[in-house]
């Protein structure tokens, strides 16, 4: 075997490894109920939940007391509603959006969000 063949083989196998690991490593979009199930076995697995903000439920953000504590309610695609805690400043454009993707951990009584992905309501949107 020539060096080039070895190189090609090595790279094809790394490529395959990337392709396979892509199915193993990354998390899935789940709903709150599934998130609870997963959290029982793997409490440290980061989960993605597509949610809608519950605008009627109260939000708690009291920056003078703690600028790194924000609490709100969101419901997933099945309609299940859950309390969400986000230990960071309240995302200021949150009230202007309704669909948010929560990334974090399920904690039984609440969802501990590490990241909140919002659609920025840019002017691309039709009115």
């Amino acid at each position: 075997m020539k060096p080039v063949h070895i190189v090609i083989l090595v790279f094809i196998s790394i490529g395959l490894a990337i392709g396979i690991s892509f199915y193993g490593d990354t998390s899935k979009y789940v709903c709150f109920a599934e998130a609870d199930e997963i959290a029982k076995d793997k409490p440290d697995m980061k989960l993605h939940v597509v949610t809608t903000l519950s605008k009627t439920k109260p939000q708690i953000y009291d920056p003078q007391n703690d600028p790194n504590y924000f609490e709100f309610y969101a419901s997933d695609t099945t309609g299940m509603e859950k309390r969400v805690i986000y230990r960071n400043a309240k995302p200021t454009d949150l009230d202007k959006t309704d669909k948010v993707v929560l990334i974090g951990y399920s904690r039984g009584d609440h969802f501990e969000a590490k990241d909140i992905l919002k659609k920025c309501p840019s002017k691309y949107e039709k009115k």
Partner: peptide
């Protein structure tokens, strides 16, 4: 909460 222990303190008043 264990997660809360490592909570975010990155914003300052």
């Amino acid at each position: 909460d264990e997660v809360a222990k490592t909570n975010n303190k990155e914003n300052l008043l």
